[in-house]
């Protein structure tokens, strides 16, 4: 015998200290903030309270350019193109979506951030990235 049921689960996500700074900067200033580690130099995005590379907590916020390189991508039919983007000045990559992506995508292509018009301190305040040119 098989039983199928559904249940509603409400939950609240607390962005915390570093996550809140990232989301507020996104909302108020249309800026993408990261964190630079004094111990190992790793620059993470979004902002963190401790370094994902070395676990130390002596970090300072840095503003990142709204531009970067396409690291990898995948297209989910009906849902769009999702991509990992290495922002200029950051180590590692940010997962987001591509807007109006051209037919031909290539690793290393230049992309630029596009912000939503009405913003609410949510990751969707960053509407996505548009491809602006070929890679290096």
């Amino acid at each position: 015998m098989i039983r199928e049921e559904k249940i509603q689960i409400p939950f609240v996500y607390a962005a915390g200290q570093a996550g809140s700074r990232f989301l507020v900067a996104l909302r108020d200033d249309g800026r993408i903030m990261g964190s630079a580690c004094a111990a190992c130099g790793h620059v993470s995005v979004p902002t963190r309270s401790f370094c994902p590379a070395c676990s130390e907590s002596d970090l300072s916020d840095v503003e990142l350019a709204g531009e970067g390189n396409l690291v990898s991508w995948t297209e989910i039919p009906g849902r769009g193109v999702f991509a990992l983007i290495n922002l200029d000045g950051a180590d590692g990559a940010l997962l987001h979506r591509l807007i109006d992506s051209p037919d031909k995508l290539a690793v290393g292509q230049r992309v630029r951030a596009q912000f939503a018009e009405t913003r609410k301190a949510h990751i969707s305040d960053l509407a996505g990235f548009v491809v602006t040119g070929a890679g290096p």
């Binding site: 607390a14 915390g16 200290q17 570093a18 996550g19 309270s49 401790f50 907590s57």
Partner: peptide, 12 residues
């Protein structure tokens, strides 16, 4: 409520 900290920050 500890809304001031995310889960990893609370653990840290």
């Amino acid at each position: 409520r500890r809304d001031d900290l995310s889960q990893p920050e609370l653990v840290r």
